[in-house]
Design a protein around this nucleic acid. Structure first.
Lengths: 216, 216, 216, 216
DNA sequence: GATGAATGAGCTTTCATTCAT
DNA sequence: CATGAATGAAAGCTCATTCAT
């Protein structure tokens, strides 16, 4: 099933976020967003991103999906577990999305460009919201949960490191460059609003690429 | 390029953080860090940075300076006001620090380099902790407080925009570049530890400079 | 004159306080006193009357009905809302009670007499305690809550004004007379104890009637 | 000195409130309203009347007279003692005022009329505010303080009982009549505003007199 | 006498979590 | 599975009172 999923992902690089989610759901890697659990995770992602983890109450969450707060604990054992699951699903989705984007890129430069745009899309798309949570709410996670997420996260980061290395970006070793980049990109959540800034996501990706790309 | 950086560091040594604070205190722009209010603000900056605003209780804060929780409200009218005051003082200090660093830089490139290093020092120095709070806890501030801080913040950002513009950085208009930079630099708080990464702040500033500086 | 009073008492006996409450509960106008919310409201009425609103803590209230203080906020959003709800329910109950008493009175004089006795019973009966709160704790209510209660209160006061007008009481316009009466009657809560004063409520109502009734 | 005071009071029946206060201050029966203690008592009377005892903080009180809250305790040992002293001074002032008013009345009816007007003036005059506190905040007083005030109060009430008895008011024994009256009159504080109701204090006294006076 | 800092008990309220129905 | 009532710990905050200066 894992393999099946990867095959599908590879073949359909031009899939819409909705299609990609559908594929990953069928592969058992993501929770069905139509299920109670899935609706809860989506609502959580949205609220944690908007208001922050600790300013979001389980009552807010329950209200958002139209149940009572007590019922949440039939699906998750704690509020923190919800955060953890959100982060895992977001990571899985972002990984799949980025892998498919990178695979379609021809040159190292294009690969880097694809990574940047893919991450920005993950941050700002409505499809599976919550990417900025990975950065902003990292400290809200227990050590145990952090480890769980890091396991999935490593895979995602490896794609980045490869892209940065092969594109020969300035700024020294790829780890440091990537860390500066993750800060820059995730912070866009706080200020970039597609409608207001007169800037589209691809345009924003261009700007970031101009900065981080190798000097020609 | 490394040399340019080192020059800045030496020159800037003209006034230590402690001295600068002393000057600002005498000018009535900062609270005396030895006063009860000042000790509270410093402790708040430290704790808000370490644990986050909402995970820090007023009891934590009180314990940190050796008083009882009720006594805090002699000096501040609410927990949120403490955050606001911390942000204002941090901004004032960071502005003064950066202005003096920029003034001693000879070229546009050196000015940009000075800005980067100055902000990194603000983030990681112990002198006036709390710079990363400005980014990380922005949403914990009420609209009213945000406006108060923004008034001071504008001044600080203007120095940056001037530096970015005159250095002719890539990435389009200076506002967007600065926003990407803010994210990149403030996020270093989460991962950069001078002792562990085998990287000093000037070295880290160099890396960032290599990325954001104009392509030669 | 004593006889007139006794007739009213006998006739009014047609419905006991308990029965009237039952009817109002079924009609959805009062909270069921057996429900958690109803038990809380009754306890609040008792305590606010005995100790005053601000000297009654939500912990007192919770202890009185055998729950913990936090649980109160499942039923009410604030302590002040409890006061508001108590006042509304007391007003509704007192209105219904007085209306039925007045309807059974034959003459204008008997109607006034019935009003006086009905209000005294509302003040001193155990059935729905809390009438004196309406006067004594009025200032503890926010402006918004005051308006809510006044809406219900107007109806109650209209019955009084009609009775005063048709009985041709001395003392000028009915509004002023009623206000003097409200003060006189509600203050009895502070000094009248049926067992101690050697005076029953109907007897006390007689005394008040002798004072406020038209001079023959 | 006690005698001297009484002589003065007798002789100058037409004294203004200010003059009467001056006399009582000289006789050592009231605190000089210009002294810090006196200003505190006046402010307390005003605030307790406006907002209620428990809703008035010692900080409010201090702010009202322009000192800091800690300084209050150089003049009074507790907040409750302030209330007690206010009540005592108000009682002394109201007694002196009513005694002089009653002495100038020719008939029993006029004496009753004088009592009513005198009490209304005590309630609504600005000179020594706080009469309504005697009724409204009685429960805020400790048992010990209640006894102290009652000692002075008895004298005041005796004047009333004599007036009621000699005027042959309806409503049974004078104690009950007086109690109904004190409720009616003190409650006027809550609704009577000289400027708004189109009713002066003497006119209001007339209305009350028409109600409580003997039926002709 | 006043100040300002601190106390400490107690307040109302919040909230993740539990559990009988 | 969902409900709704309750829990209980802990939160932010209030306030009368104390006391060294």
């Amino acid at each position: 099933m894992q393999e099946g999923a990867q095959v599908v992902v590879e073949v359909q690089g031009a899939m819409s976020p909705q299609q990609l989610i559908g594929t990953l759901v069928k592969a058992g890697e993501l929770t069905d967003p139509a299920s109670p659990r899935g609706r809860l995770l989506n609502a959580a992602a949205r609220l944690f991103e908007q208001k922050g983890f600790s300013r979001t109450t389980v009552r807010d969450l329950a209200a958002e999906v139209g149940i009572l707060s007590g019922s949440i604990f039939h699906h998750f054992s704690s509020k923190e577990q919800i955060l953890c699951e959100v982060m895992k699903e977001v990571t899985i989705f972002a990984s799949a999305r980025m892998r498919s984007a990178v695979e379609q890129a021809a040159s190292p430069q294009e690969r880097l460009r694809a990574c940047i745009q893919s991450e920005l899309e993950a941050i700002h798309e409505r499809a599976v919201p919550g990417f900025s949570i990975l950065v902003m709410e990292w400290r809200s996670l227990s050590d145990k949960s952090q480890k769980e997420v890091l396991l999935l996260r490593d895979e995602y980061e490896q794609i980045w490191l490869d892209a940065i290395n092969s594109a020969r970006c300035p700024g020294g070793d790829a780890t440091v460059v990537r860390r500066l980049m993750v800060g820059a990109l995730s912070h866009t959540y706080s200020w970039f609003k597609a409608r207001e800034n007169g800037l589209t996501i691809p345009e924003l990706a261009d700007r970031a690429y101009q900065i981080f790309a190798p000097k020609s």
